[in-house]
Design a protein around this nucleic acid. Structure first.
Lengths: 219, 219
DNA sequence: TAATATTTTTAGACTTATCTAAATTTATTT
DNA sequence: AAATAAATTTAGATAAGTCTAAAAATATTA
């Protein structure tokens, strides 16, 4: 059995591994709001358990065993988010902290029954793919709204930034999952965009906002 | 904020308070499968937080603040049990350990939405009353099957023993919540009973089994 | 490449919850 | 009421996870 803390470290390392092969001590410390010295200690412990590969001063990465645990935690997190939003009617900006606790309840039986109860969702309320019970994840296509050019159209399929403030803002302007966005214009100076949402009106959004929205181009 | 451990101690003291006004250190140690010395330490900590009244060598009991926390944990435990049985189709003998983890997730919002989702159940799958959000509990009528005499009839409304083996046994003989039991005979020697269940057949049950079944007499 | 800056690790301390063993208090017997 | 037994508390250790400050390693810059 692994503690909540160990699971959180594995999850953080998994997340950071997307950007870099070797994850630095400081990166983990930042991600978990802790100190580098604490990270070193925990990494050694995880290395003893063969959950990470670790060479002092060189960074860490997950072993297959470590990755398996990380993915299973993410799977639970995302399933619980679906439960909270679909069944308990929470909003997408309210569920992260609760899922952060629920994800550590380790029962395969519970996870599978929950998944079935939710009718095998493929994505969580933020559009992130839910790993299946074997640990396979539908890799996110990394196209964002900021990548589109004038007159192009995209369907919102996910968000990169999960902060309350961002999600709340998106709700307010109507940029929710499934919305169809068309680029009306781009300001060269700061890359802010003028867009229409579901063929309606004209909204101005910053580059910061547009590059955190995952989209899919229509077929 | 209180730790999982503190909540478990409060819950244990609450449970034991039903039988005795002052709860002994050893009783708590037994209930939580820990040592008396550990209990003494934790009780002092809870006393510092004004969650229990404690006089060395004299036992503990809960303050109003402590009782409030204990009841809220029990409320969450029982609501989650309903969720696990009604929605996820677990059996009543499978849910205790999971509810034991879920009960420590502290979010009033979550608890109230869960309660609403479950349509405000009054009892958990073992027939135990679910405290309302103000901490009021429907006190259990303490009548058991063992209290009935020949030819009397009772409806099963709860179980006192929550062990897997007992619940499993009850399932096997058909002694589930709502079943109507009539006493056909009592053996004076060991107080074992011969009963009919839902007016069907004849089953022999031990005194140990009958005194752990709460019943309600028909009106 | 030498000097400086940054990152990472080590050393030692602290907190929470636990334990064993010994000491103390309360309860029970004779 | 004294002696013994049982229950409870204290003292000192241990393990997990964290921290600060100092030391060591690596990276950067002039």
């Amino acid at each position: 059995m692994n503690s909540f803390t160990e699971e959180n470290y594995l999850k953080a390392i998994f997340k950071l591994s997307k950007h870099k092969e070797e994850v630095s001590t400081n990166a983990v410390a930042d991600e978990l709001n802790t100190k580098a010295s604490s990270v070193t200690d925990m990494i050694k412990k995880l290395a003893d358990k063969k959950l990470v590969n670790y060479a002092p001063y060189k960074g860490v990465n997950l072993t297959d065993a470590g990755r398996k645990i990380a993915v299973s935690v993410i799977r639970k997190h995302r399933l619980w988010e679906v439960f909270l939003v679909d069944k308990l009617k929470f909003k997408w900006d309210e569920v992260h902290d609760l899922a952060e606790e629920l994800e550590h309840i380790n029962s395969e039986e519970l996870t599978e029954r929950l998944e079935e109860f939710l009718e095998f969702p493929k994505y969580d309320p933020h559009g992130d793919p839910i790993p299946d019970k074997n640990g396979n994840i539908d890799r996110h296509k990394e196209q964002t709204l900021a990548d589109l050019s004038i007159n192009e159209t995209g369907i919102i399929v996910g968000v990169k930034d999960h902060s309350k403030s961002y999600l709340n803002y998106l709700d307010n302007v109507g940029l929710v999952l499934g919305a169809e966005v068309q680029i009306l214009g781009v300001v060269e100076f700061d890359n802010s965009m003028s867009i229409s949402i579901n063929k309606q009106g004209k909204t101005i959004i910053s580059n910061q906002a547009s590059k955190n929205l995952y989209i899919k181009k229509p077929n």
